[in-house]
Amino acid sequence: MPQKLILPMNSVNVNAGYKMPAYTKTWGFRHYGIDLGNPEKKRTIYSPGDGTVIACGLDGETATQRLGRCIVIVYPDVICNSGKRTDLACRMFHLDSIAVKVGQTVKQGDILGVYGNTGANTSGPHLHVEFDTDVKYPQYAVGIKSSGHVIKKGTIDSTVDPAKVWYLGQGQTIRDGWDGDGVTSGWVAQNDLSLPRLPENTPVPDYQALYEAQRKKTAAMTLGIREILEKIEQLVQ
């Protein structure tokens, strides 16, 4: 069934756009994705659509190496806002924690994890997201020097500008992470900030409600484990 992908957070700052010249000049290599942050410091990220987790985990030996914690998901039959319809691989880098596992089917709005500052090439907490039309080899990313545990060295650029993929869901906002200077300074493209919005009657997940439900579920599980441990202690005594 065809699907449209929305942002992985309700409120988003764009800190670096797709293949922007200022990024290349600063870091010495081309940027094949988009760097996002949350202005409210809410770092939980959600699945932008329905897909399957292909790979996830630490890309290096430690959290400070390579691309940090990564997730690779394949989203089938995506209708991009550019009008293109295709299967897409989505790669996310620099997560602090991961809430999914390999082979898991995710629905739009499912919690994927929490973005952070893991990895080597990062100057602060953010989520790097890139889309690729090569779903046969979804872990292969162009622009990296060598293969890691999760992300492998690719040689062909089949990436897609995320600004030509995403839609804004109900209540979602996107803004320049440089307080308006990102476009003029070459870090952010104008089309990064001009995503089309889904019609009001389009059903989209309530990220905050999903977060609260997950938090309550985790709290209940923690309480249950604590009660079991207390009973074991009583039996031992």
Rank of each mutant, 00 (worst) to 15 (best):
I174G: 14
I156G: 00
P162R: 02
K152D: 00
S147I: 02
G143S: 02
G180L: 06
D176R: 10
G180A: 13
H149Q: 14
V150I: 15
Y167H: 14
G169E: 05
W178K: 12
V142Y: 14
G180R: 13
K145L: 10
G169W: 02
K164E: 15
A141N: 00
W166T: 00
S147Y: 01
G143M: 10
Q170H: 13
V165H: 10
G148S: 06
Y167Q: 02
V160P: 01
I151G: 00
T159D: 07
G143V: 05
W178H: 15
P162V: 04
T155L: 06
V165N: 05
Q139T: 14
W178A: 11
K153L: 05
D181F: 12
D181V: 04
A163H: 04
K145V: 09
W178E: 09
Q172R: 13
A163S: 15
G148P: 08
A141R: 02
I156V: 15
G169N: 11
Q139A: 01
Y140V: 01
A163P: 11
D179F: 13
G177I: 13
I151L: 15
I174Y: 10
I144C: 05
V142P: 00
Q139G: 02
G154M: 09
K152I: 03
P162A: 09
L168H: 09
Q172P: 11
V165T: 06
I151V: 15
V160A: 12
I151N: 02
V165K: 02
I144V: 15
A163M: 08
Q172Y: 07
S147E: 06
T173C: 07
D161H: 06
V142K: 14
Q172K: 08
K153A: 05
S158Y: 02
A141I: 00
D181W: 10
T159S: 15
H149D: 12
L168Y: 05
I174L: 10
R175P: 03
G169M: 03
L168N: 09
K152M: 10
L168G: 04
S146H: 11
G143Y: 02
Q139N: 14
I151K: 01
T159Y: 04
Y167V: 10
D157I: 11
G148C: 07
G154Y: 02
Y140T: 03
A163E: 10
W178C: 06
I156S: 03
V150M: 02
V142D: 05
G171L: 08
W166S: 00
D181Q: 15
V160I: 14
T173L: 13
S146Q: 13
R175V: 07
G171F: 01
V165A: 06
I151F: 05
R175H: 09
G180N: 13
R175N: 12
D157E: 04
T155A: 06
L168C: 10
V160N: 03
V150L: 01
D181K: 15
D176E: 11
Q170P: 11
D161S: 05
V142W: 08
A141C: 10
T159I: 03
Q172F: 07
V165E: 07
D157P: 04
T159N: 14
I144W: 03
L168W: 06
I156D: 12
